[in-house]
Structure formats: C-alpha cells, structure tokens
C-alpha cells in the first residue's frame, strides 16, 4: 500500500471514529466540527513528518504526487489530472464565497432550557404532605392556572400555547420535569420567565411570575399535581 493511500485511509478512519464512535462512549458528547478538523490536520501533519524523515520515504511519498501532476505517460490518469487542476481552484473559490457571503438567516439562538437556579432554591423540599387530597388539589390549581398553556394533558399543548416561542414545557417529555427536582419547579413557577438568568433568554418567556398571584402552598401542590398528572417523578440525589 502506498503512503498516500495510507494517509487517506488514516484520515477517514480517524474521522469515522471521532464522528461516530467517540460520541457513543459513555460520558462523552458529540465533537464540534472545528475540533474534528483540527484532529485531522494533526493526523495529516504527523503523517507528513513521518513520511519525510528519510530521503527514501520522502521519495516514496512525493514521487507519485509529482508523477501524477507532471509525469508523462500516465494513461487514463491524464483526465483525472485535468479534473483535479480544474476542480481545485473552483473549490477554493466556492469555499471563499461561502465564507464571505452575507447570511440570509436570522441570528442563531442558544437558549439554555434549564439554567441553574439561584442558590436559595437548591435543596428546598416540598413542605406539603403528599396525599391523594393534596395531589387532587394541585391538579385543580393546575387546570385553572397552568393548563391554558401547558395543556390539560400536561403535554405543552394548551389552547394558548401556539404563539409562544419558546413553547410551554411539555411535562410528559422525560427531558423536562423528570430531570428536575421539585425545588427547581418551585423556582420556575414562582419567578416565571422574567426570573431566568441571561442564558435562559428571559425576554422571550411568557411564563407568568406566579409569586404575585399564588401562595407558595398552592405552588407546591401544583408541582405534585404536575408530576402525578404527567406520570413522572422528581429527580432525586441518592
């Protein structure tokens, strides 16, 4: 196998591992494209250093490239040479255009959906005893105050929901209240959208600041009703 084929294969394998294998390793996450590109560049540089340590290996590596570009009698590769010589400038041009062209898309938004709560809310526990009666009361309050947006089925599809961006949370979705502690919900309901930190983009949220309208005890009951109605359990730290 020629060294050029080796280099290409090495890069392809590295790319596949970084893109598809590594993110599946427990505790890992998908790699940003810029980082993958950097790793491929490092792989290539390393290979080039190895390929040029001796005059012999250098010739082995560069020789075929040189023959491809200027050698005579390369047969069918002659056409490929022209393709490469035409395609390369076009690629450079296309790359330049796409990196300088003015974007038509509105700015992207990276809203943090569950930002950290203020310290005073961490570790609060629900003071209301969990009984069928209190859960039922909570569901009643939920129906009156929350369901217009969060939906009678706790799915975020209330009749008033459709115009809001971000949309009202869907409590049946396992990535919402099932990932959160009751104290977190207490903070979110009490302080509402305007209580979010800057990474939560508070200026976009329609969630009311319920502390102005509901007593704390009702809020704790609503939380119990929400978990029960959405068939979820609060996250706990055991």
């Amino acid at each position: 196998m020629g060294p050029i084929i080796k280099l290409i294969l090495l890069n392809v394998v590295t790319y596949l591992i970084l893109k598809f294998v590594l993110p599946n390793v427990p505790g890992s996450a998908p790699l940003p494209a810029s980082l993958i590109f950097l790793y491929l560049l490092l792989t290539t540089s390393g290979f080039l250093i190895l390929a040029t340590v001796s005059a012999e290996s250098k010739e082995e590596f560069w020789g075929p490239i040189q023959r491809f570009l200027v050698g005579d009698g390369i047969g069918g590769l002659q056409a490929l040479r022209w393709v490469v010589l035409i395609l390369f400038p076009l690629l450079v041009g296309w790359q330049t255009y796409s990196s300088t062209a003015v974007s038509d898309a509105p700015p992207g938004e990276n809203r943090t959906i569950h930002p950290a709560p203020p310290g005073e809310y961490a570790g609060l526990s629900n003071p209301v005893p969990k009984t069928p009666e209190t859960i039922q009361q909570g569901k009643g309050f939920y129906a009156a105050f929350c369901s217009p947006c969060h939906g009678g089925n706790f799915d975020g599809k209330g009749s008033a929901a459709r115009g809001f961006n971000p949309p009202p949370a869907n409590f049946a979705d396992p990535t919402t209240i099932a990932m959160l502690q009751e104290s977190y919900l207490f903070w979110r309901i009490k302080k509402g959208g305007v209580g979010l930190p800057i990474e939560g983009m508070p200026w976009k949220s329609a969630m009311p600041r319920w502390e102005l309208e509901l007593p704390d005890e009702w809020i704790w009951k609503i939380i119990m009703g929400e978990y029960d109605g959405a068939h979820q359990s609060p996250r706990t730290w055991e």
Partner: peptide, 30 residues
Amino acid sequence: VVVGACLAIGFLIVQPAAAEEKPKADAPAE
C-alpha cells in the same frame, strides 16, 4: 500543495457537518 489540498478536502468534509451544527431557529408550533 498537500497541506492546501488537505485543507480543501478537510473543509469539504467538515462544511456539511458544521452546517448541521448551526443552531436551528426555534420552531415551536406546528
């Protein structure tokens, strides 16, 4: 040349991937 070519190929590989990563505009309602 090789570095240039690798850059070009690298961009080609990475460009579609990078495009995927751009945060999508929020699309709440159907």
